[in-house]
Design a protein around this nucleic acid. Structure first.
Lengths: 208, 208
DNA sequence: CTTCGAAAATGACATATGTCATTTACAAAA
DNA sequence: TTTTGTAAATGACATATGTCATTTTCGAAG
């Protein structure tokens, strides 16, 4: 018998989910939480096999709650539900170690997803997989403003990360070579880097 | 009722899988193929909901067969089985549009995986997900041997792509700075690049 | 018009880098 | 043992790079 905890801040949704899952003979909904905070508390007392959790909630959201629950030592497999494609979250969900990420819309497949997750597999909604390659590549959003990087400097960064020399950059941007040199220097200072190679590394690791 | 086709060049394996799946009341094994070629033929005549297929087979391998089957217009969800972690294939499997990639070892979870896949979800073996971020980012184009790049040189490349100077690299590898300089020079020649920055770019674009 | 400030440019300098010819070290092969 | 081949090191050199102080340009604000 698979024991499940449902977490959703919309009572209608959590109710529906409960009905769907309780209808299965091999699945038992042991608890229903209405918030991330409640989920954290219940998780340790109920200790379910699977946690079906909405990822977007008021207050503590799904990933935060999951992080806490895992930190508390729960062995539960966490299955995230999302209304549509909340791109932003999937990356974090994977990092945390979630075992599933599926779309609320097709709740018909929920029971089989729960079983698959309970048996150690990871499940992703059909559409999610297709986007996976792109989503995973996404870096932590680099905000040029935060480092006082101007538009022109951003352009220089890209050209450096393309392997161009100062001279080549100057020709491409219609500037003097010395100017480019100064710009690179200023960029390096702002980003606390040492040389253009480190700048290229920074670009590929944090920006692209 | 979910109709399934099994593909594996090892009769013992395909037999076992058939027994496991036929044991489920809602799953029916409609066909068993012993090779990729046979799978392609059978797929169009049997038209199963799910194809459970070994990825590593003699002759036409799993991904090739899958590619052909999909091209032939089958709507079957394809679930790849792999003996261990065949890293190389998962990338291709995802590109093709496979719906699952799980480890043969835990065949106990196979039925639930089949159901999940049949209902439109995508399933990955537990260990696979953890490696997913790395695997997806891998660019499979670069072969060090093709460019005569030795192991030590490969190490240097990585350190350059980490933003280290020749001096820092030399300390890390217990070599003279001049030696590192020569190695970098030789690498640049082999890869037809101009400077270390281009090398870093190459690394991030073609290798990592 | 003048003033002001940012962007662009210049020149000088120290250092890092890449290339090349040559030498040394050392282990495998003869 | 000698020979040989390769990795490692050295030294010399030209060039690219990064930093800094200073100057020029030029458009907007006064």
């Amino acid at each position: 018998m698979i024991s499940v905890m449902i977490v959703d801040d919309d009572p209608f949704v959590s109710g529906s989910l409960k009905i769907i899952l309780d209808n299965e003979t091999d699945i038992e909904v042991k608890a229903v939480a209405g918030s991330g905070e409640e989920a954290v508390k219940l998780a340790s007392s109920v200790d379910p096999d699977v946690i079906v959790m909405d990822i977007r909630m008021e207050g503590m959201n799904g990933t935060e709650a999951a992080e806490q629950i895992i930190k508390n030592g729960s062995k539960a497999a966490i299955l995230f539900l999302t209304t549509f494609l909340d791109d932003e979250y999937i990356n974090k969900a994977l990092k945390i170690g979630a075992k599933g990420y599926i779309i609320k819309q097709d709740c018909g497949s929920l029971p089989s997803s729960v079983r698959a997750v309970a048996s150690g597999q990871a499940v992703f909604g059909g559409k999610v997989v297709e986007k996976l390659p792109d989503l995973l590549n996404r870096k932590d959003n680099f905000d040029p403003a935060e480092f006082d990087i101007t538009g022109k400097e951003l352009e220089v960064i890209k050209l450096v990360a393309d392997g161009l020399s100062n001279k080549e950059i100057s020709e491409k941007m219609f500037l003097g070579e010395g100017t480019v040199r100064n710009m690179v220097s200023s960029i390096l200072t702002k980003l606390d880097l040492r040389d253009r190679t480190q700048l290229a590394c920074f670009y590929y690791q944090k920006m692209v």
